[in-house]
C-alpha cells in the first residue's frame, strides 16, 4: 500500500478494495491531526475534526477529480471542517481582524518587506514561544503558517487549500512571518531582562 500513489489508492478503493482507503487514512491522519491541533488547540476536538474530515472524504471520494492533488483536497476539507467547528464554538478570530470589505487589517498593518529568513521556526527552543504567538494571530493566517511550516507545502498548494490567489498567500505569509518574528524577539528580549 505504501508504494502506491494517492490516485492509485483511490482507484483501487473505487474498484472495491476497501483496504485501499485505510492506506489513505494511514498516510494522512497524523499530519491532518497536527494541522488541526494547531488550529483548535485541543486534542479531543482535533481527533473529532480529523475523523469527520475523513468521513467527508469517504462520502465524496467518487466526486474527487483524480487529475488534481489529493493532498490539497483533503487539507481543504479539513481546514473547512475545523473552521466550521470553531464557528460553532464561537471563538474564531479571523472575523475580528477583517473589516467590512473583508480585508485583514492585521496583515495590512505590517510593512511588506523582503522575504525573510524563517529560522525562528526551525529552532527547538522557540517551539513554546512560537506556539504561543501563533495563537494570537487570526485563523486564516495561522492556516497559512501551519501549512507552510508543518506540511512544507508550496505557496501554490496553500493557495489551493485556502482558495486565495498565490500572491495574496505569499504576501500574507511574509507579513505574518515578520509580525511573528517581531513578537518573538520582543518577548525573548523581555524574558532575558
Amino acid at each position: 500500500m505504501k508504494s502506491l500513489t494517492d490516485v492509485q489508492l483511490i482507484s483501487s478503493y473505487l474498484e472495491g478494495n476497501r483496504e485501499a482507503f485505510n492506506g489513505l487514512i494511514n498516510r494522512y491522519s497524523q499530519s491532518l491531526y497536527k494541522f488541526t491541533y494547531y488550529l483548535v488547540n485541543n486534542k479531543e476536538e482535533a481527533h473529532d475534526i480529523v475523523q469527520e474530515s475523513f468521513i467527508k472524504v469517504w462520502k465524496n471520494i467518487k466526486k474527487f477529480d483524480q487529475t488534481k492533488s489529493f493532498k490539497t483536497w483533503i487539507f481543504t476539507i479539513t481546514e473547512r471542517t475545523a473552521i466550521d467547528f470553531l464557528r460553532k464554538r464561537k471563538n474564531i478570530s479571523f472575523s475580528s481582524m477583517d473589516n467590512d470589505e473583508s480585508e485583514n487589517n492585521f496583515a495590512q498593518s505590517v510593512p511588506d518587506k523582503e522575504p525573510m529568513q524563517d529560522e525562528i521556526f526551525e529552532r527547538n527552543e522557540n517551539i513554546e514561544l512560537v506556539n504561543e504567538v501563533l495563537n494570537m494571530i487570526p485563523i486564516d493566517l495561522k492556516v497559512i503558517m501551519i501549512l507552510r511550516h508543518g506540511e512544507e507545502m508550496t505557496f501554490e498548494e496553500i493557495a489551493k487549500v485556502v482558495d486565495k490567489p498565490v500572491n495574496t498567500v505569499k504576501s500574507q505569509y511574509r507579513r505574518t512571518l515578520f509580525t511573528l518574528k517581531e513578537h518573538i524577539n520582543s518577548r525573548m528580549h523581555r524574558n532575558s531582562q
Partner: peptide, 13 residues
C-alpha cells in the same frame, strides 16, 4: 516547529 510536535492522540487511525 511543528515537525517536533509529538503529542499525537493514540488510536486515531
Amino acid at each position: 516547529m511543528i515537525k517536533d510536535y509529538n503529542q499525537i492522540l493514540p488510536g486515531l487511525e
